[in-house]
């Protein structure tokens, strides 16, 4: 297990390194002068030159990249002319917009994205796995049909339509729910949940059909296995067979897929966050792209990459824990 984790971590670092090269190159090689962007639209030539000096943009690109890596590991100091701005490790650079260290920016947005992702996950698991189970066991029943249509429609409809519809119905017309604003969990858990309910539902609808299908096929597959026949032949009730034996067998793939999805979600659900005005990582990324705030974009992409790679590894470990016949290589 330890060896596996070590090897997997090494692999993950390699992936992230490659990703960082790609992203770094992509943005800094792209047309447009970073110094001009960093300085702002009202800068004169002299100020731009000064910024170029501060950011060491005059150096050859490989050297710039090395400094970037160095900053990631050890932190970095930027001289502002009047003083020194310290950017602690991991340093992705300073935002062009407000000179804040990117890592700090990302960290401030993380609770929002985490709240959104984890809550939505609970909902999509309930909805998806529930629908899948019903579809496997009571095929053609009224509840199953309604749920299947609901999940499929949720997946087929773009988030901004589902979200807007929900907003219109529950906030504008019925006025059951407040228009979502983010309230930190530590401040008021109840308001936190009420405000996030619609974003959660929107995301859950988007993801649930996938889980419904996966659960359905995995459950049907397990139900056809010999050991289910054994327990039928030993007089177990169908409910118990499904709950204890069939569902257990269907679970590992669901767990594995879920870990990956959650990892991706930590990169921010851009549309959902933007739609509901939630200040999460996704929204930060969108804004940064719009304002060409390159360090933030690079930092966000690497952050998402790290989350996905980590989720993949977690999925593997969870799979091995869920199915003891699997040994990690």
């Amino acid at each position: 297990m330890t060896a596996y984790v070590l090897r997997r971590t090494g692999g993950a670092l390699l992936v992230l390194l490659l990703l960082s090269v790609t992203v770094y190159a992509l943005f800094y090689v792209a047309p447009g002068d970073p110094a001009k962007l960093a300085c702002g639209p009202r800068c004169n030539a002299e100020q731009i030159a000064q910024v170029r000096e501060q950011l060491r943009l005059g150096e050859p690109l490989p050297l710039q990249y090395l400094h970037f890596l160095q900053g990631l590991v050890a932190g970095r100091d930027y001289s502002t002319g009047t003083g020194v701005l310290h950017c602690p490790a991991p340093c992705f650079g300073l935002s062009y917009q407000n000179d804040q260290p990117v890592a700090q920016l990302l960290a401030s947005r993380l609770p929002v994205t985490a709240s959104l992702a984890v809550g939505a996950m609970v909902l999509w698991l309930l909805l998806g796995v529930g629908t899948g189970l019903l579809a496997a066991l009571r095929r053609g029943g009224a509840t199953e049909r309604v749920l299947t249509v609901l999940t499929l429609t949720g997946t087929a409809t773009p988030v901004f339509i589902t979200g807007l519809l929900l907003l219109m119905i529950f906030c504008a017309t019925l006025q059951w729910l407040p228009f979502p604003t983010y309230v930190p969990l530590t401040e008021d858990p109840e308001q936190w949940a009420w405000n996030l309910l619609l974003p959660w539902t929107t995301l859950a609808l988007l993801e649930s059909a996938k889980y419904a299908r996966l659960t359905r096929s995995a459950t049907l597959e397990t139900l056809a296995e010999d050991h289910i026949r054994t327990f039928r032949a030993y007089g177990l009730r169908e409910r118990r067979i499904v709950g204890r034996h069939a569902l257990r067998g269907a679970l590992p793939p669901v767990v594995a897929l879920n870990a990956v999805d959650l990892g991706t979600m930590f990169g921010g659900a851009m549309l959902t966050e933007s739609l509901f005005g939630l200040p999460g990582i996704g929204r930060l990324t969108v804004e940064s792209v719009r304002t060409v705030d390159l360090p933030v974009v690079v930092g966000a992409v690497l952050g998402v990459g790290a989350a996905v790679v980590l989720a993949g590894a977690v999925a593997d470990v969870l799979y091995a824990l869920a199915d003891r016949r699997v040994t990690l290589p």
Partner: peptide
């Protein structure tokens, strides 16, 4: 087949 006839998870 005693392998497939027993639940692998319990």
């Amino acid at each position: 087949d005693p392998l497939s006839s027993l639940d692998p998870y319990h």
